[in-house]
Amino acid sequence: MVISPIVGAFMTGMKVPAVSEVLYTGGLSEMIILLSIAASTAIYGSYRVGSLRREAFDAKGVGMYTLRKQIGTGGMGEVYLAEHRLLKRPCAIKLIRRDKVDDENILLRFESEVQATAGLTHPNTIEIYDYGHTEEGTFYYAMEFLPGLNLQEIVERFGELPPERVVYLLRQVCSALAEAHHKGLIHRDIKPGNIFSAERGGLYDVAKLLDFGLVKDNRPEKNSLELTMEGAVVGSPLYTSPEVVTGDGEPDFRSDIYSLGATAYYLLTGKPVFEGESALKVVFAHASQAVKPLTEINPKICKELEAIILKCLEKKPEDRYQKAEELSDALKELKLKEWTQEEAAEWWSDAEQFVQHEPDPEYASEDHLKATTILPVNA
């Protein structure tokens, strides 16, 4: 940019004597000096702005964590890819949304989620590293960063899953739920988007149960806070149980069984149990309409697996499996070929371009993050 006007002046001076005279009587020197000052100012200014941007980016953090990039958002909070400043360990940070800070009900639900999840140690439940409050009052917690995809994304991108793979994933979720139920905790928001299929320790299709944001403490010895409005339907309309809709009786562990059955229905058919023009129509369909058999949508599903899923989707809680262990045992008895790690590794190799990856230790560069495919995370 500095050279161009000087060259242009020379070329003009060669054709216009008056311009040439001005250049040779001090005009050229003055122009070079002014352009050099402008160039120096521009270069230094660019450098300073870039430095300030990097400093502002690195300063954006909570507690001992530096926030790198937003990777998800939801009704209760936002999720960021982050790094522990000392351990240099990548993790996911969940923050309460700033526009929800003044909502005490949301804050209580948010804190309930982290406290409930932190008490769970099953390998198929997402691990909580840390939680706290910032000086500004923002509540946050740090959890493991999961390389992979949630089951909602998998079905949307690749279609319904083979029965043996669904059984493999469901049994892991049943194990995670069993621990939560034994501790008196009801998840109340089980859905494909809250189950993650991750790579952990060199193993693929490791199921991780996420988002205990609607968890309810059902232990009789504690006076748990009811964190939803009286009469409100909690959970996701496509996967909510009939008793939650009708209010007939208190939802319990069997409500999670229903939601897990509805999730399995979606994984096997690519369609939810009930569809409708509005959330209200869908939730009342769960309470009043008969479930369409899975084999009418996907004939590849065996009758035995169909019977198990339909039992999970019974309208009356007493007609379903009463425990997550019972459902797991029923799935174990199926005469299906097993989903192997070789098959899982091959599937994930083919799906590589869509996978949410754990960044390398040197991932602090903003450019690297822009080049990484990060899929939405249910928050």
Rank of each mutant, 00 (worst) to 15 (best):
I43M: 13
P192G: 07
E325W: 05
L52F: 06
T373P: 08
N218M: 14
E296C: 03
P17R: 11
V234C: 06
D102A: 15
L35Q: 11
A287L: 08
L149I: 02
H181I: 06
K370R: 15
R85E: 08
E338G: 04
A364N: 12
I43A: 13
P317L: 09
I374S: 10
P361L: 08
K323R: 15
Y131E: 07
I297K: 10
Y131G: 05
T372F: 03
L161P: 02
Y204V: 06
S29K: 11
T125Q: 02
K300C: 08
A9E: 11
A180C: 08
E104C: 03
A279E: 13
V245H: 00
P220C: 10
V377N: 03
N298P: 02
L35G: 00
L120T: 09
I93E: 01
K100V: 08
L52D: 11
D319C: 09
F253C: 03
E135P: 04
Y129R: 07
L369A: 08
P162D: 14
S46V: 07
G148H: 03
Y65W: 14
A324H: 00
N150F: 00
P220H: 10
Y321R: 06
H357P: 10
F354I: 07
A264L: 09
H182T: 13
N298D: 07
C174G: 05
L169K: 09
T340L: 11
V79W: 02
G74L: 08
I308L: 09
T121C: 09
R54W: 05
E362T: 10
A42S: 15
M31L: 15
T340Y: 02
N298Y: 05
S328I: 04
E179H: 06
K323L: 13
G184R: 06
L336Y: 03
S36I: 11
E136Y: 01
V245E: 05
A330W: 04
Y129C: 05
N298R: 12
P242W: 00
V377S: 01
L280F: 11
K191W: 01
F253E: 05
S40F: 13
G213K: 04
T373M: 12
V155T: 10
L107S: 12
I186K: 01
P317F: 04
T66N: 01
L120Y: 04
R157M: 12
I308Q: 04
I374M: 13
R219P: 03
R171L: 09
I128H: 01
M31E: 05
E366T: 11
F145I: 03
G61S: 11
A92G: 00
T12K: 13
N194L: 02
K208P: 05
E160Y: 13
E153G: 11
T340R: 08
P359L: 10
C312E: 02
D211T: 04
E275M: 13
P299F: 07
V215G: 10
L375W: 02
E250N: 10
G148C: 10
D58K: 13
I96S: 00
A92W: 00
A371H: 10
G202N: 08
L185W: 08
D58I: 15
E318K: 12
G235D: 05
Q353F: 10
Q152H: 12
T117L: 14
W348R: 11
V215F: 03
K60W: 12
R171K: 12
Y129F: 15
H187I: 00
